[in-house]
Design a protein around this nucleic acid. Structure first.
Lengths: 154, 154
DNA sequence: TATTGTTATACTCTATAACTATA
DNA sequence: TATAGTTATAGAGTATAACAATA
């Protein structure tokens, strides 16, 4: 299996497989496919689970703040919140001071659904990361955060 | 800023930010946005760049083999190959033994375009990974490959 | 003027299914 | 029967632009 054609390369041309971005995407897709399968029974897409998580974690968060935290547009969040509200997982509550905003508050049902889903997600991650030690997982997360921080600063 | 509501949690409920999958996605999106901006002038989307890379690396590869390597469906590859062929970056060559297959061979123009794009991509990665040491980058790639391997084995 | 939530819209990515021509 | 390439199609996911209500 001949690799790169015989071009006179003095500088090293990295193989696709050596690029961080390529490996990042492949690992992301791999994990994401299993994540979807994990929460398919609960009918929770990754984004919907993420939104519910943050609403449980930060009750009364506004949609704008939530969209900012998730790194998506406000407009894109509407359908997600609609979906969670339709299931009775959260409510849009009006805020006394400012009549523009809608505070998102989790219901008891929503909190329970989230807790159950979180258990399934933890199992999913344990399964998918079985080949990594605890230290490796910790360092992986630290490195991923560094990449994100660098990109978001600009 | 009150974190999780006061539910009687004995087990640790991990925050969204502690999930590997969530951090993986955010880092992926961050890197990918800059990648797109980097190759926008060359009009090369990530997938098109990846496909061109592999055709340069493995001349005469078939579309089916290329799709398998990239982890996408054969049907999805058609538009990518069409796009590269339209620019004159590669040619679909018929193979003597089997008249069903189309061997993908890079042109000289395609090889040069790829080399130039690869330089830009290397600069992009150097910029985005400036906060990571060489060892950290190496380990990051190793960990990402472990995740991918685990997922693809099943 | 600026911000919140919203709608309308369009574009990219990707998968599934079915077709054809070959094997 | 099975495989390579292709077409048609549909469904996510996401962004942009504009709007009404409110600040």
């Amino acid at each position: 299996m001949a690799k790169r054609a015989q071009v006179g390369n003095t500088a090293e041309l990295p193989d696709l497989e050596d690029l961080v971005g390529y490996n990042l995407k492949r690992a992301y897709v791999t994990l994401q496919v299993d994540f979807r399968a994990t929460l398919e029974a609960d009918d929770l897409a990754p984004r919907v689970f993420s939104a519910l998580s943050l609403v449980v974690q930060y009750p009364k968060i506004t949609q704008s703040a939530l969209a900012r935290m998730l790194g998506i547009e406000r407009s894109g969040l509407v359908a997600i919140v609609d979906s969670l509200e339709a299931r009775g997982y959260l409510a849009r509550a009006s805020v006394p001071g400012d009549r523009r905003v809608q505070a998102l508050v989790p219901t008891a049902v929503g909190a329970r659904a989230h807790a159950a889903a979180a258990v399934a997600v933890r199992e999913h991650e344990a399964r998918m990361l079985a080949d990594l030690s605890a230290e490796e997982v910790t360092q992986l997360v630290a490195l991923l955060r560094k990449i994100r921080a660098r990109g978001e600063q600009s």
